[in-house]
Nucleic acid binder design. Structure first.
Lengths: 236, 236
DNA sequence: ACCTGAACACCGTTCAAGT
DNA sequence: ACCTGAACACCGTTCAAGT
């Protein structure tokens, strides 16, 4: 009996910013953002909520830290780095799949990545790791992209990833149950929105719920690569 | 002196679900989602918070209502309807611009449109007005689209709008101030993220902050139309 | 140095009571 | 029928106090 009982939630290691962020991500992954409060997070770490304020100035900045953590987790993968000798198209593909894996691994966190105001207020596009943006831009510039082309490519890739992955993630939440019934899945929010009154929607429901996202992702990505290539015609 | 003093915020009209939603949208537009509480919303209507529960079952469903309201506001525009004799490509362009105007008019509300779980759980893609989806699908089906093609088109258009508009909206929030200084815009969140250490980012800051979103939107949209046309080759 | 207890000003929500 | 007061179980955050 040397002191370690299995206590409420957490052992006696000292607190630390990284440990806090990891716990926060785990909590969001498990139960969604709604369940994450300073108090519940403290509890999961075996500590009172107030202790967290030594390491994190506010709940808002905690969420910023969460986004940073998952994005940098992906960036840590050496596959995600563009070396001068690399094929840039291959790099963009690796990067896109890396972000996709991130989104699928942390579907509850990803909307946060997409909607939080970024670290550098004047960059604004999402996927906010500055590391990431720097490496992307520098990489393309070393591959015959002009500055404008590199910025355009960055924005095109960002918005592609944002749109596709938010869509795919939101489709993940579907319970394919109870579509056949008659469109009434328990309680419809309000009678005006009853699905029964939208015949096409009802008929195409299985197709809409299915979605071959992986294929569509790759096909659209291939198309995107073609569009942003420095050789491509710039239409207005 | 017939009874109307200029009171705290609102007159004596009886409450009603629509009035509540309109007030909620106004409040989010003005001060952001963070400022919207049942209590503050009640106050802005000259009523105690508890009165709202006669018309809205919960805060969550209030937010659903807000999304519905702004989406249907756009849908009310007759330009947004696809008639059998219309050119479908022209329709998709009108629709896309309609959604874009919506996003630019309510930039604080749009992320809600993008991230809220939709009314019909098995449809999932965002832009959640069932009216809207029904009309889109029915329209394309009457223009030689197969069911699968119509669904693909719906998902492609959705994710395009999502990605582009979230990006553009987030760029709207930029204060172009203080980029030249030295990259330190008051308080940097954490020293590791100091912008000074990312030279390319710093150099391209003006380009990143500018963004010719309207042009890019149209160019990408044109490309999208080409991709989803029923004649196009289906690559995997 | 690191954590806690108590406190403050808020939340969303319920329900009996007022008009 | 429609709204309110009081109450409950929560929040985020501050700060003096404990160890």
């Amino acid at each position: 009996m040397s002191g370690e009982h299995e206590r409420a939630a957490a052992p006696r290691e000292r607190l630390d910013r990284h440990r806090i962020l990891v716990a926060a991500v785990a909590m969001i992954d498990e139960s969604g953002l709604g369940e994450l409060s300073m108090r519940s997070l403290g509890r999961s770490l075996g500590v009172e909520a107030m202790a967290l304020y030594r390491y994190v100035p506010s709940r808002e900045s905690l969420l910023d830290g969460v986004v940073e953590l998952v994005v940098d987790e992906m960036y840590a993968d050496p596959l995600m780095h563009l070396l001068p000798e690399d094929d840039w198209q291959d790099y963009v593909v690796r990067l896109a799949h890396g972000v996709r894996r991130l989104a699928l691994r942390h579907p509850q966190v990803f909307p946060l990545v997409a909607t939080r105001p970024p670290a550098a207020p004047w960059v604004r596009p999402p996927l906010r790791s500055l590391h990431w943006i720097e490496s992307f831009l520098a990489g393309l510039l070393s591959h015959r992209f002009t500055e404008q082309q590199a910025v355009d490519a960055y924005q095109a890739v960002s918005s592609f990833l944002l749109g596709h992955l938010l869509l795919e993630i939101s489709a993940m939440g579907v319970d394919v149950v109870a579509v056949e019934e008659n469109g009434t899945t328990g309680q419809e929010p309000d009678p005006g929105a009853a699905v029964g009154s939208y015949p096409v929607l009802l008929r195409l429901a299985p197709l809409l719920a299915a979605g071959h996202f992986a294929d569509e992702f790759d096909a659209s990505l291939a198309n995107l690569l073609h569009r942003i290539a420095p050789g491509a015609a710039t239409q207005g």
